[in-house]
Structures are given as C-alpha cells and as structure tokens.
Design a protein around this nucleic acid. Sequence first.
DNA 1: CATAATTTTGTACTCAATACAATTATGTAA
DNA 2: TTACATAATTGTATTGAGTACAAAATTATG
Lengths: 143, 143
Amino acid sequence: MSNFVKAKEILGSNGIRPSVQRIAVLEYLLTHRTHPTADMIYESLLESVPTLSRTTVYNTLGSLAGCGAILSLDLDPRQAHYDGDNSAHGHFLCTGCGKIEDVALHGKEFGTNLGGLLPAGAQASSIQLSFKGLCAKCNTNNQ
Amino acid sequence: MSNFVKAKEILGSNGIRPSVQRIAVLEYLLTHRTHPTADMIYESLLESVPTLSRTTVYNTLGSLAGCGAILSLDLDPRQAHYDGDNSAHGHFLCTGCGKIEDVALHGKEFGTNLGGLLPAGAQASSIQLSFKGLCAKCNTNNQ
DNA sequence: CATAATTTTGTACTCAATACAATTATGTAA
DNA sequence: TTACATAATTGTATTGAGTACAAAATTATG
C-alpha cells in the first residue's frame, strides 16, 4: 500500500479529516525516515503544495503527535523533530552533525511496562529514550 | 557539607573557576530539586546576586551540563530544565501543570550498559529517559 | 444552491536562547 | 603594590522556532 493511502487511513482512523495538506505532511513522514523538523517538511512540500503554510504544518504535526500517530522528538533543544514511525524505539542525536538515528531496543524492556516506575497516580501517554553524543563519522573526524 | 562548598568543589574539579555567580547557580541547583529553568534560577538568584545577568546563568548552565556535572533536560519543548542530580534517573513531565518529577530506576538497566543498542561507531555522552502524561493531581481534576 | 462548519493561510507576535562588544574582575609577574 | 594579560560578567541587540488570531478558502450538509 502506498504511503499516500496509508496516510489517508491513519488520519481517518484518528478522526482527523484527511485534507490534501494533512495527507501530504503525514505521507512525507511515512516516506522520509530522516526525523525532519517542521520547517524541513514545509520547505520540501512547498514544491508539490505551493499554497502550503507553516501554520498548517505545525497544526497537523501537533494533531498527529497528540493522538500518538507520529512521534514528536524533544532531544534537539533547538527545535522539535518528528518521526512517522511510532513503534517503541529510542533515538541518537549526533551533537556534531545534528543527525538523528533510530535506536532499536531489541526486546529490551520499554514502553508501558516501565510504568511501575512512575510517580504514584501518574499516567504516562508517551515515553522517550534519547541518547546524545558523536556518530561514527564525527567521532572519526575529530581524532 | 554545605551545598555552597559542594558547588565550589564540583566547579573546581571540572576545571571551571568558581566565581560568585557560578557557585550561586550550582548551589541553587543542588539545593532546589525542582528542575528549574534558566529563568527561574535567574529570578531567584537576583535577590542575593543583584548584578547577575541572564547570559551568565545560561553560560554557567551550559558549562556544567557540558561536563556532566548537571543534567540539561529536553523533555519540555518550550524551554530547558536543569537538574543538579546527575545520577541515573528518568523524568516525568505533567502536561497539565508542567511539573517535572524524578523517576527512580530501581536497578533497571540504564546508562552506558545500554550502549550495545547504539549505532555502530557512535559514542553516547548522555542518556535521557522521559515520560509525559498527567500527574496524580491533574489526573483527578480532569475527571 | 445556500448556509454553516471546518480548514487553511498569512501576518504579527512571543519568548527562550544566542551573539557580541564593552565593562569588570581576577591572576601573574616584576 | 603596580602594571599588564587573561578571563568572566554584563547588557543590549538579535535570532528563530513556535503560537495567536482573524480573514479567506474549502468542504460538508440540508
């Protein structure tokens, strides 16, 4: 199934009307696994959706992250990055080049089963595991 | 030992000259376990250090976080929070009231031993485990 | 088609964080 | 102590991600 159709379905099943703009944003996230920022998405989509506005991108990303369909990543203090893969995994931010890579968890305990650690009465709706450091390339270049 | 002396020692052992301002910032973090923002620290210290500037607070927090003496928390997308406790633990941000609480790990696997998960050649210098949701109080009020 | 409800757009704005140069403080050597 | 070099602090100007909001455009419904 194409990511266009997938995007349409995900929007619909989350009660978000699948407008052209919203489909484009989500399709971009499903296709590009580069953890883009809102502005990267906006700039890229401008070619195919010339009337697109930044506000719409922000609103769409907010709605999708709010219902858990995508991940909003906080590990870059300068701006949010987004991930169309909402399965349980962590992220590695290279402080050298700024690239974000996925960190597979390979069956390590993660997710709601960590809930036993939470403060009494608290209920978590999202979990993030974030690593920062130097990626292989930046590690080598700095030596 | 007083937090003032502790702050002085931590600064010295990390090669950061223990000026009045820097000691004040770190002493505040060691005393107040409230995960304050840079501005909260600035406003609070202004009474005792009237000439203090925001830039100095930002610079000091950056230096301390850079050498691992304190933690810079990314879980609030609006602004960074800081933690004078640099031991291995996670954090819970209540999206209702904005409060940040510590999440003890009780021996769960965390820290550099998770390094086996990282991308090949990458080297992590910091790890964060962040939960978001509603705290006990906000959970009750919303029902 | 007409009307209401929703979505999109664009501009103005907020505010955390940074850049930078001037000022102040501190260390060192004679 | 004094003179000088180095480092730290300060304050202002600026950046830029994200938001607020009202007008315009689109879509749903009768």
